[in-house]
C-alpha cells in the first residue's frame, strides 16, 4: 500500500497549481525512494518532473511501486479551497482499486477533514526514464536567483505573445535573453555578479563553450515554480534537452526539460 503524509500542504498544493496551469494530466510514480511526478506537453517540447524524496515526507510508506495517472488540472482546481497549513495524507489501498485518496485535515484539532478521491487515468507515454546527466555534459550552466529570472521572463513575455520564442545565449561572463515580438526584439543582458557584493543572490555562469539556443517562452515562464525556490539552474547543451531546475529543498526539486527549437 501507499501512505504518505506531509504536515504542511503548502508545498504539494503549490506544485500542483504551478503544473496544473500548463499540463492537464500527470503521472505519479511512487517507489521506496520517493514520489516522482511527470507531465509532458503534447507537442513533445517540454517534460516536467517533480521529485519528492521519501525523507521530505513526515511519514512515507510504500511497500510496492505504484504508477498513477491523474488529472492534474482537476486536482489543482479541487485543492484551491484547502488551507496551506492543512495536514495532507495521500493513500492508495492494496486492492488496486484505481483510486487515490488525498486527505486534508486542519491541524488544530482535526475538526474538519476533506477526502478527495481521484480516479486513475491512462496517460500514454509516461513515465519515462530520466537519467541524471553530469554537469560536464552541458556546454553552459547558469545559476541565478528565481527573483531575478521571474521578472526577466515577465518582461520577455510582455514584449511578445503566447507563441513568443526566446533565444538564450551564454558567453564567458554573461547570459542574454532575446525575445522576438511582432514589433521587434527585446534583449536582456545579465552579467555574472561578484559573489562578494551579493553573496546571497549571485548569478553564476560556468561555460565550456559558447551556446545559443531557442525555446518556447510559454513553458519557460514558470512563474509559480519560481516562487517555490530561491534559485534556478539552467543547463544548456545543443545535444541534450535543456534543464531548468528549481531546487525546493535539499530533498525535492522541479525540473523542466525543454527541447531547443530549430532556428
Amino acid at each position: 500500500m501507499l501512505e504518505l503524509r506531509l504536515v504542511q500542504a503548502t508545498l504539494f498544493k503549490n506544485v500542483v497549481e504551478a503544473l496544473g496551469d500548463l499540463f492537464s494530466t500527470a503521472h505519479f510514480n511512487s517507489s521506496r525512494t520517493g514520489l516522482e511526478l511527470q507531465a509532458k506537453d503534447n507537442s513533445r517540447v517540454t517534460l516536467i518532473m517533480l521529485l519528492l524524496r521519501a525523507e521530505a515526507f513526515d511519514h512515507y510508506l510504500c511497500d510496492r511501486g505504484l504508477s498513477m495517472g491523474l488529472n492534474l488540472a482537476g486536482m489543482a482546481k479541487a485543492f484551491c479551497c484547502t488551507n496551506n497549513d492543512d495536514i495532507i495524507t495521500i493513500k492508495a489501498e492494496e486492492d488496486w482499486s484505481d483510486t487515490v485518496t488525498f486527505t486534508f485535515e486542519s491541524p488544530e484539532d482535526g475538526d474538519e477533514i476533506s477526502y478527495f478521491h481521484f480516479d486513475f487515468m491512462v496517460i500514454n507515454g509516461v513515465p519515462l526514464e530520466i537519467p541524471e546527466y553530469p554537469e560536464s555534459e552541458y556546454q553552459a550552466i547558469v545559476r541565478m536567483p528565481s527573483a531575478k529570472f521571474m521578472p526577466i521572463c515577465n518582461k520577455l513575455s510582455s514584449f511578445g505573445d503566447r507563441d513568443t520564442v526566446v533565444i538564450i545565449s551564454v558567453d564567458k561572463e554573461s547570459v542574454d535573453f532575446l525575445s522576438r515580438g511582432k514589433t521587434g526584439t527585446l534583449t536582456i543582458f545579465c552579467r555574472e555578479t561578484q559573489t562578494v557584493d551579493k553573496p546571497k543572490e549571485p548569478t553564476l555562469i560556468e561555460m565550456k563553450e559558447k551556446v545559443s539556443l531557442m525555446f518556447d517562452l510559454r513553458y519557460m515562464n514558470s512563474s509559480k515554480a519560481s516562487t517555490l525556490s530561491d534559485q534556478v539552474t539552467i543547463s544548456l547543451s545543443s545535444k541534450l534537452p535543456a534543464v531548468f531546475e528549481y531546487k525546493i529543498t535539499e530533498m525535492s526539486c522541479i525540473r523542466y526539460y525543454m527541447l531547443p527549437r530549430n532556428e
Partner: peptide, 14 residues
C-alpha cells in the same frame, strides 16, 4: 520497470 521509455526517445519523436 514501470518506465515506458527514455527522455531522449520522447524528444526524438517530436
Amino acid at each position: 520497470g514501470t518506465k515506458q521509455g527514455s527522455i531522449m526517445s520522447f524528444f526524438k519523436k517530436a
